[in-house]
């Protein structure tokens, strides 16, 4: 049977992708951001899973306003890199895991989660920046990500967006689905986006360290209580785009009950407009 071994949480700022792609990662400004991921890259090399289930939000790339799914699961064998308006990032295409994705879809839809099944979806920085941060830039002679990735897109752009509670419970349903997959796969669930940031209007640039640190503490210690935080608290305290943090609750809900091991924790302000938060939680072996 498959099992979830660990969960990874990280911001997915587009400027991080640009810094990597343009070779700016050595600059002092960016060094401070990337230093928080040195541990993580080694950790991922030591703990490479068979599949990553990567929760992110699309930023007006795969989905236009014609059709906005609340939750979309990528069931394809391959996902192209989106041209977000400045050309596609020069990173490898993402290989999916259609069997596990279809199995998870089957299981969580039976558990009353109304997923949109997606067989074609270009993936944007929301997905590729976390991969870059955790895997580094793939070598040109082995231009691929270390394992298959199931993209899972959450609508946090057009209101109404799903509640933290709904996301947390979805994570639990995903845990159950993975546990019933009949192959000995090690699966990691990644939750991306956040932390506090606001990109728009006169309040742009908002950062709330206190909120972010408390969120990280509670995510580790009492996610059940954290899942009851209402939307308005995210928006007011963590900025209009801080709402992306509900996606972390999906990854946290997918972890086993009881305390996880905190393998790594990092927080830094700023990367571009955003407070960068990063956690690695491991399930007991």
């Amino acid at each position: 049977m498959a099992r979830i071994t660990a969960s990874v949480y990280t911001s997915h700022v587009p400027a991080i992708g640009a810094a990597l792609d343009l070779g700016k990662s050595g600059e002092p400004y960016w060094q401070k951001v990337f230093s928080g991921y040195e541990f993580s890259k080694q950790w991922l090399r030591d703990n490479t899973p068979d599949v990553i289930f990567l929760v992110y939000n699309d930023h007006a790339n795969a989905f236009s306003l014609e059709m906005i799914p609340t939750f979309a699961i990528g069931c394809a064998a391959e996902f192209a890199i989106a041209d977000e308006g400045w050309g596609p990032r020069p990173v490898p295409a993402v290989h999916g895991h259609p069997e596990l994705a279809a199995h998870i879809a089957q299981s969580v839809i039976q558990d009353d989660f109304d997923l949109t099944i997606v067989n074609k979806m270009p993936v944007d920085h929301g997905l590729t920046v976390p991969l870059s941060l955790m895997c580094g830039q793939p070598a040109s002679d082995k231009f691929e990500w270390p394992c298959p990735v199931i993209p899972f897109a959450v609508n946090v752009v057009q209101y109404p967006v799903p509640s933290g509670r709904r996301c947390y419970n979805l994570g639990r349903a995903i845990r159950k689905a993975v546990a019933s997959f009949d192959a000995p796969l090690k699966v990691q669930v990644w939750g991306t986006g956040g932390m506090s940031h606001q990109l728009q209007g006169p309040r742009a640039g908002l950062i709330n360290r206190e909120f972010d640190q408390a969120f990280l503490d509670q995510l580790i210690a009492d996610p059940e209580a954290l899942s009851r935080k209402p939307h308005i608290d995210y928006v007011r305290e963590a900025g209009s785009e801080g709402i992306e943090l509900v996606m972390w609750l999906i990854a946290r809900g997918a972890m086993s009950d009881g305390f996880p091991r905190v393998a790594h924790r990092f927080y830094h302000v700023p990367a571009s407009n955003t407070a960068v938060g990063h956690l690695i939680l491991e399930n007991a072996k």
Partner: peptide, 24 residues
């Protein structure tokens, strides 16, 4: 919406940070 509007900035060669600055 800012994620959509970012495409205009991208077309102009501007970063999110430049765009955010322009709103303040």
């Amino acid at each position: 919406n800012i994620y959509f509007l970012a495409k205009i900035g991208a077309t102009d060669g501007k970063s999110f940070q430049q765009m955010a600055g322009s709103m303040t």
